[in-house]
Simulated assay, not measured.
Amino acid sequence: MAQGFSAALAGEVRARRAVLRLTQHDLAQLAGVSERFVRFVEQGKPSVQLDSLVAVLETLGLELKVAARTSQAARAAGQPAENSAEQ
């Protein structure tokens, strides 16, 4: 699942950077991170530093949101699904 998230994030960052006509170097300088870091994000590297990632996303006008969802762990703990109707 983490790989799916990393790949989706990578695609969004690449696409937004292209729309803004920024090079990886430009983005790195504007965000205050290394060009290597930008490459890692765009390659979907699953382990990146969160504060640096947030700086890149903010520079591109993107945001990272965290939302509750039913996970395997929640189901195992007997918690109801987020979207299930109560009776």
Rank of each mutant, 00 (worst) to 15 (best):
L53S: 07
A55F: 05
A7H: 12
T23N: 11
L50W: 05
A7I: 15
V48N: 09
L9E: 05
E42Q: 03
D26W: 07
A31D: 10
A55W: 07
V54W: 11
A76M: 05
L50T: 10
L60S: 06
V66W: 01
R21G: 07
S34M: 03
Q87M: 10
S47F: 08
V38M: 00
Q87Y: 11
S6I: 00
R75M: 15
S6M: 02
A76E: 13
G44S: 02
S84G: 08
A18D: 12
E63W: 04
V33D: 05
A10T: 09
F37W: 08
G4T: 07
A67T: 12
V56K: 07
L30G: 01
Q87E: 14
E86T: 00
R21W: 02
V54L: 15
G11K: 14
K45F: 05
A77R: 11
F37A: 01
R14C: 01
Q79N: 15
V56Y: 14
R69E: 13
H25F: 03
L30A: 10
L27E: 06
A18L: 15
E12W: 01
E35V: 07
T70G: 03
F37D: 00
A15Q: 09
L62W: 07
L60I: 09
K65W: 00
T70W: 08
A67D: 10
V48K: 13
G4Q: 07
Q49H: 06
V13R: 11
R16S: 06
L20N: 04
G11N: 12
A73I: 08
A31K: 13
L60F: 04
A81V: 09
L53T: 02
F37P: 04
E58P: 06
V41N: 00
V19N: 02
G11L: 12
V54D: 00
T70C: 15
K65Q: 11
S71G: 14
K65R: 09
A85Y: 03
S34Q: 09
Q87K: 14
A73L: 13
S34T: 13
A15R: 11
E58F: 15
A2K: 08
S52L: 12
S34W: 03
Q72H: 06
A15C: 00
T59W: 09
L50G: 05
A2R: 03
R69G: 06
D51K: 04
Q87G: 10
A55R: 15
E86A: 05
Q24G: 14
L20E: 14
Q3K: 10
V19W: 08
F5P: 02
V48E: 02
A55D: 14
L62F: 05
R36A: 11
K65F: 00
G32L: 05
R16W: 02
V56Q: 11
